[in-house]
Amino acid sequence: MSELEELYRRMLVIRRFEEELAEVKKLGEVPGSIHLCIGQEAIPVGVSALLLPDDYVTATYRGHGWAIERGSDLAGLFGEIMGRASSVAGGRAASPYLSDASVGFIGENSIVGAGVPIALGAALSCDRLGGGRVSVVSIGDGAMNQGNVHEALNMAAVLALPLVVVVENNGYSEMVRIEDMVRVTNLAERGAAYGIPAETVDGNDPVVVARAAAVAIERARTGGGPSIIEARTQRLVGHYSGDAQHYRPAGEVAAAREVEPLVRARAALLEAGRDAAELDAIAAGVDREIQDALAAARLLPLPDPTTVMEHVYA
């Protein structure tokens, strides 16, 4: 299987997981809201291709794709988001607070930008303990305006910590266009203020993302300090489940669907000589994997109420 074919398959896993999750939400099996990364799969897939098992990843509340890429059990993820006694967090995290220490996924955070100081702490531990480990944190474009993000970036730069900040710039800070919030819309330019190398890449191409990540991760592993990767993309769904997206111009989502990661990867594979039937077979295999995981999740029991005080620190 070629590099692009494998990246295509991994993006399909995330896409089908989230599409199925959206259906499960409609059936009333998911408590609370969910934030899907449909349309942004190339970013976690491209970056994660360069990570090692001992590395750390922190994400936003739109982090299902990152958890999957770190190797979290699919049935466990479905079960966790459905509020069941899963192997991931026992039904305590749901969608916006997923974490899985067993695979180095420090977790999501529903507070905008709050994952960066947490990832900074992980990067500090990587630096002090040695071993060449790195800490990667994914944030949205709106998080670049948070004060604690600026403080964390400055500290990472001053201490030359192995931190890689991935800005998933989907053009909207929740429901407001990033152009209406900042004067410098190329967010990678902000790296210069901290002395942090930064670049803007096509976030819909997993190969391009992987190339940028390879440079940043190698820099971090070898003591070169932090990096910022701004990955330009678009989400194909609302900010959260139930978001009607009235704020988006007519035709914008339809246009985005023409250049989204899976469409582009499939087209590139066909152009390279791959047979459509082979790609359809890959998709069918992914569908079976997702359906098996969901079926297993539905067999998980609800959390035992008598354990509510476990894993609580006071």
Rank of each mutant, 00 (worst) to 15 (best):
144 M>V: 14
161 L>Q: 05
241 S>C: 07
219 R>G: 06
118 I>C: 14
29 E>A: 14
288 R>S: 14
279 L>H: 11
137 V>S: 02
178 I>A: 03
292 D>S: 13
229 I>V: 08
99 S>G: 12
293 A>Q: 00
49 A>S: 14
218 E>F: 06
171 G>L: 08
119 A>L: 05
194 Y>N: 03
95 S>Q: 15
226 P>L: 09
306 T>I: 06
57 V>H: 00
234 Q>A: 14
1 M>I: 15
100 D>W: 08
305 P>W: 02
26 K>H: 10
2 S>F: 13
8 Y>S: 08
269 L>S: 05
216 A>N: 07
77 L>A: 02
148 N>M: 15
181 M>S: 12
171 G>S: 06
71 G>D: 02
201 V>P: 00
285 G>P: 05
126 C>H: 11
270 L>Y: 13
296 A>F: 01
262 L>Q: 02
180 D>M: 07
195 G>R: 04
283 A>G: 12
13 V>I: 13
132 G>K: 06
50 L>E: 12
239 H>Q: 15
204 N>G: 12
51 L>A: 02
75 A>R: 01
127 D>I: 13
91 G>T: 07
175 M>K: 08
187 L>A: 10
254 A>W: 00
240 Y>P: 09
196 I>T: 03
119 A>G: 03
74 L>N: 03
133 R>D: 12
313 Y>G: 09
271 E>T: 12
128 R>L: 13
6 E>Y: 08
130 G>K: 03
129 L>K: 11
18 E>P: 05
219 R>V: 11
79 G>L: 00
129 L>C: 15
61 Y>K: 10
172 Y>N: 09
11 M>Q: 11
264 R>A: 13
125 S>D: 15
81 I>Q: 01
28 G>N: 02
140 G>T: 02
184 V>L: 14
213 A>S: 10
236 L>N: 08
4 L>H: 05
23 E>H: 13
162 P>H: 04
132 G>W: 04
306 T>W: 06
38 I>M: 05
154 N>R: 04
159 L>W: 14
49 A>D: 10
151 E>K: 06
303 P>C: 03
10 R>P: 00
249 P>G: 07
19 E>H: 08
306 T>H: 03
244 A>K: 15
264 R>M: 15
312 V>T: 15
196 I>K: 02
288 R>T: 12
206 P>S: 12
34 I>E: 08
185 T>M: 15
270 L>P: 12
